[in-house]
């Protein structure tokens, strides 16, 4: 019994030598596998998720109309009216929803073994993150555009012409902070929890960032809110309209939270790829 058990006999010339010898010098894709074609396919895939699209387009547009009609948007708000102020708020809210939910899809991809499957392709981790970041920008831009377009068509918001692209640009750039948050949570939480968590989290952050209701400056709530992730962006994005001087603490708030989310995402991403 023992005689044959341990005898290792590798390599038996059972099959003829391969007819076509595989060359070992094969090309590796440029950009670690990132390509415009891949980008286009990925965006199309994300847009196919109807729940995401409704969430990031319909929600902020609807909220804009509800808020502007109940408040009365014609009052003065610096270089424009209150309706413009609300429009900017909803632009930020939409962009933030779009980027977080686009990135948090990573949780679903992880649970389906897709991220693991990608490791059997030439796509590098850096290229994958780049792909995700580009998708976040596209989806964020789509959401901001939808909100601003709805606002422009309704005719409610009034502000100087240059303020439209400027505030939209700040909203979009700032929403990258939340793309990093989405990625962090996508790698941190199991897929079944991540969307619920995000829905609540985004709403809470939006409230504390003054997007739904302006928080009186100097109040206790304002002090608490100043430590939350949307506080800095919420003020920065409205500053061109209201004419308020930009405060260093807003910029600091944005940078610190961005650093925290990026470091968190890198930490979880490393743990995820080192697993197994």
């Amino acid at each position: 019994m023992t005689s044959a058990t341990q005898s290792a006999q590798p390599g038996h010339p059972v099959r003829p030598a391969p007819a076509v010898l595989p060359t070992l010098h094969r090309p590796v894709p440029a950009w670690g596998g990132f390509s415009l074609r891949l980008f286009a396919l990925e965006v199309r895939r994300l847009l196919r998720n109807r729940r995401t699209v409704i969430l990031m387009v319909v929600m902020p547009v609807a909220l804009y109309f509800i808020a502007s009609s109940s408040v009365g948007g014609d009052q003065d708000a610096g270089h424009g009216n209150v309706a413009a102020y609300i429009l900017i708020s909803m632009g930020v809210y939409g962009a933030m929803l779009a980027t977080t939910s686009a990135e948090a899809m990573v949780a679903v991809e992880r649970s389906r073994g897709w991220t693991r499957q990608l490791r059997l392709t030439p796509l590098t981790p850096v290229a994958y993150i780049l792909l995700k970041a580009c998708c976040a920008v596209v989806l964020g831009a789509l959401s901001v555009t939808a909100v601003y377009l709805a606002g422009a068509v309704s005719g409610g918001p009034q502000m100087a012409g240059y303020l439209w692209p400027l505030t939209a640009g700040i909203a979009l750039a700032g929403s990258l902070v939340f793309a990093a948050l989405g990625l962090f949570l996508g790698y941190l939480l199991p897929s079944e929890n991540v969307m619920q968590f995000l829905g609540l989290g985004v709403a809470a952050m939006a409230f504390l960032g003054g997007l739904f209701y302006p928080i009186p400056a100097g109040s206790t709530l304002d002090l608490v809110a100043s430590f939350t992730p949307l506080y800095g962006l919420g003020h920065l994005v409205h500053a061109p309209l209201t004419g308020d001087p930009v405060q260093a603490v807003w910029v600091l708030n944005v940078l610190v939270w961005f650093a925290i989310f990026v470091l968190g995402a890198v930490w979880r991403f490393r743990a995820d790829t080192a697993r197994g």
Binding site: V28, R112, G113, Q117, L120, T124
Partner: peptide, 13 residues
């Protein structure tokens, strides 16, 4: 990365 190795995993992916 060179496409020399490919796999069919048990599930997922």
């Amino acid at each position: 990365a060179r496409g020399l190795v490919a796999a069919v995993l048990q599930s997922g992916g």
